[in-house]
Amino acid sequence: MDLEGLSVLAVTRDRELRTVLADRGETYVRGRADENWRALRDGEVEVSDSLLTLLTGVQSLLAKNGADHSRSRRPLQTHFTRRRVEALRPRVEELTDELLSALEGRDRVDVKAEVTWPLTVGVLVGLLGVDDEDAPLLGGIARRLFELSDGDVYADAYAFIARLIARKRAAPGDDLTSALVTAHGEDRLSDEELSGNLFLLIIAGFETTMGAAANAVRALLAHPDQLARVTGGTVGWSQAVEEVLRRYTSVSVLPAVYTTRETELGGVTVPAGEMLLLAYAAAGLDQRTWDEAEAFDVGRETRGHLAFGHGPHLCLGAPLARLELEVLLRRLFERFPDLALDEPSAAAAPVRSWMMHHPRHVWVRPRG
């Protein structure tokens, strides 16, 4: 794969990607590209400042391995529970209804800008205990990071997080940030770990779900036969959401793991110290795993797709993402049964990011 002019390896098949993701740091490690990526360590390659910071400077649990990863992940598992997610359901439903009400009587609407964006960032604001007026800043941080074109985004993000932590320490609330800030014993994180994990929640908790929601609306409208199966009750919304996640995941490629030793993967000999990109979207289209993988089939048995990862780094936010997607899609198509894609959106350009894949706009006609 071409990565900023560098030729690097990407794991594109379901079975091989599953093998890499299941590893606990024995063959494939994460984080510290300046130490673990031999070509970078030895000065054989040069990367942009934004990419270098992404590969070396984000000290979240995604950059940890083995026991260190388990220790860093434990507080989030303790406090980011299904119960906390379910407690957010009223907020998800209320926000969805408010946003859909604003579409009434409109001839043409960008669903991404006016629904999926404000919904997902609004839910994240509630989860983290961020002030509502800071929602645009929160969403902007995620967008700027995934575009990898703004070197100031990291400083802005960590300054925002530092203010949030200070405010929650002074006056804790009933939110995830407060729970992490006030944790004791084994669940207590260092300031660096706390900042890194909150950074991860911001970028992973918004952009990925927002993109998946935009992809979902577009996919269902582009496949009216499949939409009819769901709205007609033949297929449940939760099952349709899983097929959207398999076929139209918003996560295209994520960096990265590094080999600790020479190994073989998919019949390819991979040297020690090699960087491997994780190609989630490609794995969802692997013909070896999925029959007619290119087809969008809402009734498909999709258990085991890798949209939320696999193994020790399985996405903690998966239940919340599923909740948001199901509530939004069900209510959108119940309220606007004649909803139709506006022609220009059929060829909508994707966002500028090699990591994410979703359209810049999803223009629709609410009244058909």
Results as ranks from 00 to 15, higher is better:
Glu192Thr: 14
Glu193Ala: 12
Glu193Gln: 15
Glu193Pro: 06
Leu194Gly: 06
Leu194Tyr: 07
Ser195Lys: 12
Ser195Ala: 15
Gly196Ser: 05
Asn197Lys: 05
Asn197Gly: 03
Leu198Tyr: 06
Phe199Gln: 05
Phe199Leu: 13
Phe199Lys: 03
Leu200Gly: 04
Leu201His: 05
Leu201Gln: 07
Leu201Ile: 10
Ile202Leu: 15
Ala204Leu: 01
Ala204Arg: 00
Gly205Thr: 03
Gly205Lys: 02
Phe206Asp: 02
Thr208Glu: 00
Thr209Glu: 01
Met210Asn: 08
Ala212Ile: 00
Ala213Pro: 00
Ala213Lys: 00
Ala213Met: 02
Ala214Pro: 01
Val217Pro: 00
Val217Asn: 01
Arg218Met: 11
Arg218Thr: 03
Ala219Leu: 14
Ala219His: 03
Ala219Gln: 12
Ala219Asp: 04
Leu220Ser: 07
Leu221Asp: 07
Leu221Tyr: 06
Pro224Gly: 11
Asp225Leu: 03
Asp225Trp: 03
Gln226Met: 12
Gln226Ser: 11
Leu227Arg: 06
Leu227Tyr: 04
Leu227Trp: 06
Arg229Ala: 12
Arg229Cys: 06
Val230Glu: 03
Val230Gly: 05
Gly232Val: 12
Gly233Leu: 11
Gly233Val: 12
Val235Met: 10
Gly236Gln: 10
Gly236Leu: 10
Gly236Ser: 12
Gly236Val: 08
Gly236Ala: 11
Ser238Ala: 13
Val241Ile: 14
Val244Tyr: 00
Leu245Thr: 01
Ser250Arg: 09
Val251Cys: 07
Val251Glu: 02
Val251Pro: 01
Val253Trp: 03
Val253Cys: 07
Leu254Ala: 13
Pro255Arg: 05
Pro255Ile: 08
Tyr258Gln: 01
Tyr258Gly: 00
Thr259Ala: 01
Thr259Phe: 00
Thr259Ser: 02
Thr259Asn: 01
Thr260Glu: 15
Thr260Gln: 13
Thr260Ser: 14
Arg261Gln: 14
Arg261Val: 12
Thr263Leu: 13
Thr263Val: 15
Thr263Tyr: 11
Leu265Ser: 08
Leu265Cys: 09
Gly266Glu: 12
Gly267His: 08
Val268Glu: 13
Thr269Ala: 12
Val270Thr: 08
Val270Tyr: 07
Gly273Asp: 04
Glu274Asp: 15
Met275Glu: 04
Met275Ser: 07
Ala279Cys: 14
Ala279Asp: 15
Tyr280Asn: 09
Ala281Lys: 14
Ala281Pro: 08
Ala283Trp: 04
Leu285Lys: 14
Gln287Glu: 15
Gln287Met: 08
Thr289Gln: 15
Asp291Pro: 13
Glu292Trp: 09
Ala293Leu: 12
